[in-house]
Nucleic acid binder design. Structure first.
Length: 412
RNA sequence: GCCCGGAUGGGGUAGUGGUUAUCCUCUGGGACUGUGGAUCCCAGGAGCCGGGUUCGAAUCCCGGUCCGGGCCCCA
């Protein structure tokens, strides 16, 4: 009986894994260059961790289950809440700020699409403890460096939820939340229809439209000041100064909203310019206050990169290591194993025949797997304490003393 | 959860309500028991699953599964 993969999951073959690992390696490297250290949290958590953060409605979109002890658990749908839980549980008295990064799989019960799977990977960072614009600048700069380093073609949009929050401060909470979600979706038609069905102040309605249409360079701050004069724009201006000074390219976009209210200030998103269709957001982040849900009120800033989407559009190709195939005549299998150990000690990948096939088949296999060299183990050569080394690209072959094999392999 | 379109050996495909399901590739073996890529030969392996219509279904119909595109959602 053939068992299929569960819906929305994937198998990764070696070639793809090599590419994914290479991308992952670059992400880790850059995060570490910024002083971030890796953490890991459990694959499943108490369901309540996620409902506390995102509301009961989230259960529909989550892999939630009861364990044999009757506990309500859930496979993690994201990592910000688990990281904050970990912070509150065991790191709250560590010296601030804390810099953490993670790379892990997450699970969501959603309809799969291009770039959207039920098991997917996120790479993200959290900078915990600072409420300064410098925290936003650092995290944005880090995300930007990663995307640049991977040669992605992307647009970075930076906004501030404070503007819309201030505009909507006198609006009933669930109405404001609904408006924020429509803005988040960029559903201007839906927003217009909704605003028409509720009795909203005409002046306010106009201001909402004006604000969410503001996208562009930092000069739009002046426009925004005209619309919301009582907002303190100093924070945003300082952030822009900092990002400009390190040549981060971005657009301000005051139409970036977040449906959930723990986002407090700067929010940012990056979109791939090509290759992903409807699911083109590859990065999302911002400043939030989430830890207070679990008992400690601490400002934090972070982002998560959609690893699978990035892997899909990233052109990068992993470098293939040098591979040597050890081929032996019948009866010399153990000698081949001995030689393979010497090759591996030299730091070169060695593949030995385990099928007891003919020399011809072994060489053919070496060719198929794109080995760089074949080391041929035969009676004649062994008598001289040597092996034959064949360059599979040129076809050239030479006899090398086994004692000198290690040095020889390092020289090619 | 909703709408649209798909599904034939491991991969890519052809064709058809009616003998043994086409071709390429692939995998294993051989021609060739001291040397790969070429050629030839042999072998292996398939109509997503379940039901219905029919003398007969891989083909037509219904349901499900999975894939692709979109919606919902996007923490």
């Amino acid at each position: 009986m053939k068992i299929e993969r569960p819906r929305g999951t994937r198998d990764f073959l070696p070639e793809e894994m090599e590419k994914r690992r290479e991308i992952e390696r670059k992400m880790r490297k850059i995060a570490e260059l910024y002083g971030y250290r890796e953490i890991q949290t459990p694959t499943f958590e108490h369901l309540e961790l996620f409902t506390l953060k995102s509301g009961e409605g989230i259960i529909e979109e989550i892999y939630a289950f009861k364990d044999k002890g009757g506990r309500n658990l859930a496979l993690r749908p994201e990592l910000t809440a688990p990281v904050m839980r970990m912070f509150v549980n065991e790191c709250s008295v560590m010296p601030k700020p804390l810099r953490f990064y993670y790379f892990a799989n997450c699970f969501r019960y959603e309809r799969p699409q291009k770039g959207r799977y039920r098991e997917f990977w996120q790479f993200g960072v959290e900078l915990i403890g600072s409420s300064s614009y410098l925290a936003d600048a650092e995290v944005i700069s880090l995300a930007y460096d990663i995307m640049e380093n991977l040669n992605l073609k992307f647009d970075l949009h930076i906004g501030h939820v404070g503007l819309l929050r201030l505009l909507l401060k006198d609006v009933e909470e669930n109405v404001a939340s609904k408006i924020m979600r429509l803005i988040d979706k960029k559903d201007s038609k839906g927003l217009e229809d909704y605003l028409n069905t509720i009795s909203i102040d005409r002046d306010l309605e106009g201001k909402i439209y004006d604000i969410i249409e503001l996208i562009g360079d930092r000069s739009i701050i002046e426009d925004a000041k005209g619309i919301i004069p009582n907002f303190d724009f100093e924070y945003i201006e300082k952030l822009c100064d900092c990002l400009d000074s390190i040549d981060v390219k971005y657009n301000l976009d005051f139409g970036i909203a977040r449906g959930l209210d723990y986002y407090t200030g700067v929010v940012f998103e990056a979109y791939a310019k090509e290759g992903l269709g409807a699911q083109n957001q590859i990065c999302g982040g911002g400043s939030y206050r989430l830890a207070h849900l679990f008992g400690v009120d601490t400002p934090s800033t972070g982002f998560a990169l959609g690893f699978d989407r990035i892997a899909e559009i990233c052109e990068l190709q992993a470098e293939k290591p040098k591979v040597v195939a050890i081929v032996a005549f019948k009866g010399l299998e153990n000698e081949a194993f001995k030689i393979s150990r010497i090759v591996r000690e030299a730091g070169v990948d060695a593949i030995v025949d385990v099928m007891q096939r003919s020399l011809k088949k072994q060489l053919s296999y070496a060719n198929d797997i794109k080995a760089d060299f074949a080391i041929i183990v035969g009676e004649e050569e062994l008598k001289q304490k040597s092996v034959a080394i064949k360059d599979l690209k040129t076809g050239e072959q030479k006899i090398v003393k086994i004692d000198e094999l290690r040095d020889y392999l390092k020289s090619v």
